[in-house]
Amino acid sequence: MTVAPQAQPAPEKGLARIAGHVAAISGEVDRLLGMPMGTAEDGDRLSQVMAEMQGMSKLLADTRAEIVHLSPPPTGLGDTLDAVVDETEQAAMEIMKQAERAQAASGRLTSGASTDTKADLAEVDDAATCILMACAFQDITGQRIRKVLSAMRSVEERIATLVALMGIRQEDLPQDAGGAPAGSDAALLNGPSSSAEGGLGQNAVDDLFN
């Protein structure tokens, strides 16, 4: 069994521990399989037990292999998403700054307070160009998010394989795992919802509200 270093993140440590247990059980089964056979009378029962133990051993070996593959990928997915949050915030700030610059210049032009019409028009134009350039964040963040999605899909597939391997059925899963109690304020913190998820548009909200 490989002992996970202290500094490793919790999920990885947990996986390593489970993999270790599986390996230990697997070793124990192998040891039992290697023990000398009993008398001839016990032969039938023993061979049946042995067949069952071999099945168990194989299952444990397969499970262990799947768990080993579940270890988090080397590049931190959380860091990638943190970068997306930072980049979108920076882009939003830049776009707002430039939009406000354009609004100020256009305000001077509209109100007649402009002392240099040509310069103010150029300012509006320049701000619009800066807004266009700031929108390049979408390309970068899009690539980062796709990278995370592909890693998540691969983990999802491996978990599905593991669940199938262990014969876990839907009805074995605990009900209401970890969710906030229904009817509490915390249960109302759903975040953005698409219309498919039951999210309402402004008109539907107004109908409910007024």
Partner: peptide
């Protein structure tokens, strides 16, 4: 937050308006 239960909870708590 745009689910029906959210809008209703805000209304019951006394919100004057609700913008999604």
């Amino acid at each position: 937050e745009s689910k029906t239960e959210n809008v209703i909870a805000a209304k019951q708590a006394g919100a004057s308006q609700y913008i999604v």
